[in-house]
Design a protein around this nucleic acid. Structure first.
Lengths: 114, 114
DNA sequence: CGGAATCCGTAACGATACTG
DNA sequence: CAGTATCGTTACGGATTCCG
């Protein structure tokens, strides 16, 4: 039978640690920094790529698709030539902003520059 | 010259996004769940392994070592036979607990069980 | 009991070229 | 402009064996 990401199988139930569920969503290498850049405004594909200088189109696309699947990011396609696509946070994505902020503040307060 | 995990090199400065720094610390597959299990009490090695049923000794050791390097976890060795090692959160690790809690609450409130 | 050392497989990341 | 498709690489997790 199915096993959870963490924990024993419990009958037909799958016991998943909530904290781990959250981690799963933001685990991609670029996920949180994408969310961070969308937290203040809607951005176009190329704009995001400029903000994340070392990311390739392919991987940026993949990370965005995964965030879409997890309902964190909304993708709006404008049927124009040349094409225009805008990414923004969904309500779920927006509800995550405070956690991003906590993470940033915690880092600045506690982490020494390495 | 050195490049940051995110961003352009800026003179001799390395500009690192604080949010990304935090992510780097908790990025390991078992990191946050280990922190979570240490948040309430000190635990021994085998105890942790029992709590994380599908983890092997090798990987548990590695994750703990990395958390030690990042000053999140303290390792206390008792010179006895048989050996006894206790893991606990450092002050830095403890200061991270509120974020873990936010993540858990956010998950429970917003994430539908999949 | 709490590791260390080794090896392996896969998934994630990444570079490049091409396209509507 | 915003992708897709393909392929290469690397890092991470995991299994196993051995040890004080």
């Amino acid at each position: 039978m199915a096993k959870s990401r963490f924990g024993e199988p419990v009958g037909d139930q799958i016991e998943v640690c909530p904290v781990t569920q959250t981690q799963d969503i933001i685990a991609g290498k670029w996920k949180i920094i994408i969310l961070w850049n969308l937290s203040t405004q809607t951005r176009r594909f190329n704009e995001l790529q400029r903000l994340l200088p070392n990311i390739s189109k392919g991987i940026l696309t993949r990370q965005l698709r995964e965030l879409e699947e997890d309902q964190m990011v909304h993708r709006e396609v404008y049927k124009e030539v040349p094409p225009k696509v805008e990414y923004s946070l969904t309500p779920l994505g927006q509800s995550f902003i405070p956690i991003l902020q906590s993470m940033g503040e915690w880092s600045k307060k506690n982490l020494v520059s390495k």
